[in-house]
Amino acid sequence: MDPITIRRALPTDAPALTTLMLASSAYQGTYASILEGYRVTPDYVARHRVFLAEDPQGAPLGFYSLICDPPELDLAFVADAAQGNGAGRHLITHMLNEARTAGLSGVRVVSHPPSEGFYRAMGAHRTGTLPPSPPKVTWERPELWFPIEDPALTPPAPAPSP
Score class of each variant (00 low, 15 high):
77 F>G: 04
80 D>I: 08
108 R>N: 14
102 A>W: 05
92 I>C: 05
69 D>K: 14
114 P>W: 09
108 R>V: 11
85 N>F: 12
90 H>T: 12
91 L>M: 00
96 L>N: 07
102 A>P: 02
98 E>A: 12
73 L>A: 09
97 N>P: 00
76 A>L: 13
82 A>M: 07
75 L>C: 05
79 A>D: 12
96 L>H: 07
117 G>H: 14
94 H>R: 04
113 P>R: 10
101 T>E: 13
74 D>R: 09
111 S>M: 07
115 S>E: 12
87 A>G: 00
83 Q>H: 11
84 G>C: 11
92 I>R: 07
105 S>I: 02
118 F>N: 04
84 G>E: 11
113 P>Q: 10
88 G>M: 12
74 D>Q: 14
98 E>H: 04
85 N>A: 15
80 D>M: 09
97 N>M: 05
97 N>R: 13
109 V>A: 06
83 Q>R: 15
101 T>D: 12
93 T>V: 12
110 V>C: 10
119 Y>H: 15
73 L>H: 04
104 L>A: 11
87 A>F: 05
78 V>D: 02
110 V>R: 09
117 G>M: 07
114 P>D: 06
83 Q>C: 09
96 L>E: 08
93 T>S: 13
90 H>K: 11
96 L>G: 10
82 A>G: 11
70 P>H: 06
73 L>F: 05
102 A>E: 12
74 D>V: 02
93 T>I: 03
80 D>L: 09
69 D>Q: 12
113 P>Y: 02
93 T>L: 05
78 V>F: 04
117 G>T: 15
91 L>H: 00
106 G>I: 03
102 A>I: 08
79 A>M: 04
82 A>F: 00
70 P>E: 08
85 N>H: 15
93 T>K: 10
109 V>R: 02
78 V>W: 01
107 V>T: 08
80 D>H: 10
119 Y>A: 05
75 L>Y: 08
97 N>E: 13
116 E>T: 11
100 R>N: 04
97 N>Q: 13
104 L>R: 02
87 A>R: 05
99 A>L: 01
78 V>C: 06
86 G>I: 05
74 D>N: 14
87 A>T: 12
119 Y>W: 03
105 S>N: 14
109 V>L: 01
84 G>N: 01
105 S>Q: 11
107 V>L: 06
108 R>Y: 06
100 R>M: 00
89 R>P: 03
84 G>H: 10
101 T>Y: 01
97 N>S: 11
113 P>M: 04
106 G>Y: 02
81 A>F: 14
75 L>I: 06
105 S>C: 11
88 G>H: 07
88 G>A: 08
73 L>C: 14
90 H>E: 09
104 L>I: 08
83 Q>M: 15
99 A>S: 10
69 D>H: 14
119 Y>M: 03
107 V>C: 09
101 T>C: 09
86 G>W: 06
90 H>S: 13
99 A>M: 03
108 R>L: 14
